[in-house]
Every structure is written in C-alpha cells, then in structure tokens.
Computed example of a mutant assay.
Amino acid sequence: MESAHLKLHKNPFYPVTAETYGAYAVLIVAGLILSVGIIGNVSLMCIVCHNYYMRSISNSLLANLALWDFVVVFFCLPLVVFHELTKDWLLGEFSCRIIPYLEVASLGVTTFTLCALCIDRFRAANNVQNYYEMIENWVSTTAKLAVIWIGALLLALPELLIRQLVTEETDPPEVTTPCERCVIRISTDLPDTLYVLGLTYNGARLWWYFGCYFCLPTLFTIFSSLATAHKIRKAERNSVRGSKKQIQLESQMNCAVVALAILYGFCVIPENICNILSTYMAAGIPRRTLEILKLVSQLMLFCKSAVTPVLLFCLCQPFTRCHSRLQSDCRCCLAPSHNAPD
C-alpha cells in the first residue's frame, strides 16, 4: 500500500507526444523572458544607481519598478514553469500562496509607479522653462518609494488568505504522482476575522482587480499625459533656444510613460479575461483550457516585467546613451554626464 505513494513524476519531454511540443514552447518562452528580464532590469538599476545625474525622481521610480520586476521574474517565473511542466509545486503550499501574492503586489507597484510618474511628468512640464530637475535627497525619495511598496504589499495581502493546495489523482492513477492544484478556497481553520475578510475579498476580487489594477492606471495615465502634452506644447511656443533640448527630453519621457501604460494594459488584459471566465463561465469551459489561459496570463505579466526596461532603452535618449556605454564598459555611468537627467 505504501508503494502507491511512491509514484514517479511524468517526464514532460519524453516520450514525445502533442504535450511535449507545448512543454518545449513554454520552456523556450520562459527562458527568453527570464534572460531579457534579468539583463534589462539589472542594467536599468545599474544606470540609475551609478550616475548621479540620472537620479531624478522619475528615474528613481523606474529603478524601483525594475527592482520589483527583477524579483518577480527571477523568483516566480521558474516556479510557475516548474509547476506547468511537472504539475507539482516545488515549495508546496508556500509557493501556491506566495506566487499569486507577489504577482498581485507587482501589479500594485506598477499601478502606483505609473501614477507617480504621471504626476512628476506634469510637474516637470509645468516647470520646463526653469530647467526642472528633481534630484531629491535620499530621505524624500525613500519615503515615496516606501509608500508605493507598502501600499502594494498591503493591498495584496488578502491573496494569501484565499489560496489552498489540493491534490487530485491523475488518470490513470498508477502512471504519475497525484496532480497538485492551487485553487481559490478559503480555509475554515482561519480566525473568524480573517475568514470574513477572505470571503469579502473573494467576492469583490474580480471588480477590484479590474478597477484598481487596470482602469486606474490606464485612465489616470491617459488624462495626465494629455495634460502634460498640452503643457509641453505651450512651453514649445514660448521656448528659447536653451530650453528646446530639455523640452524635447520631457516630450520623450511623456511618450515613454504612455508606452509603459499601454504595455501594462495589454499584458493585464489576459488576466482580467481569465478572472471573468473563471467566475462566470467556469462550468462550461474545460479545466485544461482555463489552466492554459491562466498560464498565458502569468507569462504576459512576466513579459511586462521583461519588456519594460527595453522600452525605456528604446524611447529615452539618456537611457539609450548610457546603456550603449554599459555594453562596452559596465562602469560607464560612474563618470558624470552633464546631459539632462531625464
């Protein structure tokens, strides 16, 4: 009877079946996202940290976002891929709870960072003729970043209450180990207060997720960017020769913020679709289809974390220039540059 609990895991790559090609595709895509995400986010953090003239509040916000994106890609992506290939959670119930928590917290960090960037860009456009340059002291910068992190982490805490790891027998049961699934299910062992909190959050999760992590950053970025663009056009009409370069850089940064918001919205849409289908149409959709959609939505979130620094390197001239130097000398940004900070 004990031997029934000593079953072997199924090898996703052998023998070759239709599922094998899917396993290779997941592995290749995950490897690409992991490589780009680690290199891009580390490069972005290095550029901001090692160059005093890149330490504006906007660049500090972007470096903070890069740090969080690095954490999510480096720690969560391998665990998600491992589960997809083996149908087993590497760290058991801990990974079942912590991965959704970190993913939702990542959405919160991105949401609040986009809002903070929009506010800072509006201030910069409003003062562009005075050569706006917000290189703040470390106390002020740390306080702003702490608000973003604490807010995102606290808002994501209910995710830890609504997850459980369940084990299901596979078909045929003697071939592989029982399949472990991480499901939304509130434990009855929780204290009454936490149990009620979990029930309330679970009931409102769909629309809270959609409103806070999709509508808020999207609408806020649209209206703020339009107001900022109006200020930039006004500054262009009244500009003198010395301020034209600064106005151009402010316009680039405003476009970069809009591009980040578009990328974020595009990558979050699959997660919202998955939540809607799971809530209202789960009975009519095969479980495997929902699992594939959930995997795609997770990979899109990881893709957002990997592509964000690439967008900045392509759209922002100071980042592009310093990244080019970084490729030839990892300490290029130690030398002060007298170009505009943004």
Score class of each variant (00 low, 15 high):
residue 149 W to V: 11
residue 157 L to K: 01
residue 88 D to V: 09
residue 107 L to A: 13
residue 58 S to I: 10
residue 224 S to G: 09
residue 138 W to C: 01
residue 165 L to K: 14
residue 275 N to V: 05
residue 169 E to R: 07
residue 154 L to F: 10
residue 82 F to Y: 15
residue 7 K to H: 08
residue 201 Y to T: 01
residue 109 V to G: 02
residue 16 V to A: 10
residue 153 L to Q: 04
residue 164 Q to P: 02
residue 252 Q to T: 10
residue 321 R to M: 08
residue 132 Y to H: 14
residue 313 F to M: 12
residue 340 A to E: 08
residue 1 M to Q: 08
residue 12 P to H: 06
residue 60 S to H: 06
residue 228 T to Q: 07
residue 85 L to Y: 06
residue 306 A to T: 09
residue 121 R to Q: 09
residue 97 R to I: 02
residue 245 K to I: 06
residue 226 L to F: 13
residue 64 N to H: 13
residue 135 I to M: 03
residue 108 G to T: 04
residue 136 E to S: 11
residue 38 I to W: 05
residue 287 R to E: 14
residue 165 L to M: 15
residue 140 S to C: 09
residue 308 T to C: 13
residue 77 L to N: 09
residue 151 G to I: 01
residue 198 G to S: 02
residue 92 G to P: 05
residue 216 L to C: 10
residue 18 A to T: 07
residue 73 V to P: 08
residue 99 I to Q: 00
residue 90 L to Q: 07
residue 207 W to Q: 08
residue 173 P to A: 15
residue 245 K to G: 14
residue 138 W to F: 06
residue 47 I to K: 09
residue 314 C to L: 15
residue 288 R to E: 14
residue 31 G to V: 09
residue 331 R to V: 09
residue 157 L to N: 01
residue 161 L to W: 04
residue 2 E to M: 12
residue 84 E to L: 13
residue 5 H to D: 08
residue 195 Y to E: 07
residue 100 P to V: 04
residue 90 L to V: 06
residue 143 A to Y: 12
residue 82 F to D: 07
residue 333 C to G: 03
residue 191 P to N: 10
residue 185 R to G: 01
residue 6 L to K: 14
residue 73 V to R: 07
residue 206 L to I: 09
residue 137 N to T: 03
residue 64 N to I: 00
residue 288 R to D: 11
residue 321 R to V: 13
residue 279 T to F: 11
residue 313 F to S: 04
residue 256 A to M: 06
residue 266 F to N: 05
residue 173 P to H: 11
residue 178 P to Y: 05
residue 342 D to L: 15
residue 178 P to E: 08
residue 300 M to Y: 07
residue 335 A to Q: 14
residue 58 S to V: 12
residue 197 L to C: 12
residue 235 A to E: 05
residue 271 E to I: 07
residue 11 N to L: 06
residue 20 T to S: 15
residue 247 I to Q: 01
residue 228 T to V: 06
residue 58 S to H: 11
residue 219 L to S: 08
residue 217 P to T: 08
residue 107 L to S: 13
residue 20 T to R: 05
residue 280 Y to S: 00
residue 41 N to D: 09
residue 151 G to A: 03
residue 216 L to A: 08
residue 161 L to M: 10
residue 179 C to Q: 12
residue 291 E to G: 06
